[in-house]
Design a protein around this nucleic acid. Sequence first.
DNA 1: CACGTTCCGATACGCTCGCATCGCTTCGGG
DNA 2: CCCGAAGCGATGCGAGCGTATCGGAACGTG
Lengths: 210, 210
Amino acid sequence: MPKQVDHESRRRQIAEAVCRLADESGLEGVTLRDVAARAEVSMGAVQRCFRTKEEMLVFALTYIGERIAARVTTRLVESPAQSARTALGHATTEIALLREEHRAEARVWLAFLAQAAVSPPLAEILRSNYASLQTVFTRLIAEAGGDTGGTEGADGTGAARGKGSHDPECAARTLLALADGLTAHVLIGHLSPDTALAVLDAHLGGLWGE
Amino acid sequence: MPKQVDHESRRRQIAEAVCRLADESGLEGVTLRDVAARAEVSMGAVQRCFRTKEEMLVFALTYIGERIAARVTTRLVESPAQSARTALGHATTEIALLREEHRAEARVWLAFLAQAAVSPPLAEILRSNYASLQTVFTRLIAEAGGDTGGTEGADGTGAARGKGSHDPECAARTLLALADGLTAHVLIGHLSPDTALAVLDAHLGGLWGE
DNA sequence: CACGTTCCGATACGCTCGCATCGCTTCGGG
DNA sequence: CCCGAAGCGATGCGAGCGTATCGGAACGTG
């Protein structure tokens, strides 16, 4: 077996190039040639790593999803001493991608979101990501609001008991959708990052404050 | 001036074709040839109506935006006797595009949203749409949460007002972003339309009821 | 009744795309 | 030692894109 190359690291390298390009000119601006040039490899190398373009996009989306999920868990692990409520706030701002340094990820995410509406393989990846995020946030919300005791059933699908913020799963869904919507509105310039952050804080505050 | 044709109606006809195609295969599946075929006109006719493809997309996006805005105002006008709160609920479900018959509009809207992140002309149109929607919803929320002269009896001036009542503008922004996020999550299959509607209702209920 | 202006549909063109192919280089193993 | 399998970069190919162009049809007008 002659001449080996670390395929996995090269795949990541290509995925990074995909993200940078998608950030600059959208997903339809991602061509195999440009990706190869940006990743500083030849076009043949890209074709060897991924049999088809869609396979490359799927890998890139999975890669981004893992990065975002890793950021959330890192945030949660790094600040364990604080209250569950502040932890929830931190995690939320982490997935909302509002900070300038995450603008690229936000654009890439939105591009994939739109593409997923007509591409089942991409939609499947997104669903999986959102499902795990929703699980995490449901638990966080339950912990943050559950100072009145009563640990929730472990795997119950959350029958809608009561209304409003008393249902952690519903609150988690609301939070995820709100974060995505705010991200999109910031990207198109309808809201400033600061405004979006204020909206997010107000919503979080209203969850248990009142 | 020989042989005249109603350009405006043909433009709308083409815009409809753009929407149907974008619904089926995304914005990058919208080619001039396919649009012409779907609109049952020749490709030259499309080129005469719009000098460039981007001009066509801009028109189509404006067209969709007007339709959605028109639906909101129609909803508001058609049910004036009800309370401001139910009017707000109706208007929100109207823009959330959750019903099956608006799935196409939702997909088109999401596609344009992603494209707008890298296309200033499209972003400008979206900003304008969101700005006017935000104005309408801010007013609705203020009326619903404040002491309005509507059919609803006066219910005490300040007793336990929801978080939205403090800042109607913030609540409107939240509602718009939440609606968009829910629409996206339904489109990729993370939420069912019914679930999204339940989340929306819960949020609206929490706005003033507490 | 021609005439010319204006609109129309089809076709041509240049370009770029994703994908396939082809020599060449580089190693491990018999 | 050298042979063959595996990695590599460059190039070719067919297709499809947006746009430009062109001959002919339609209709008000002198």
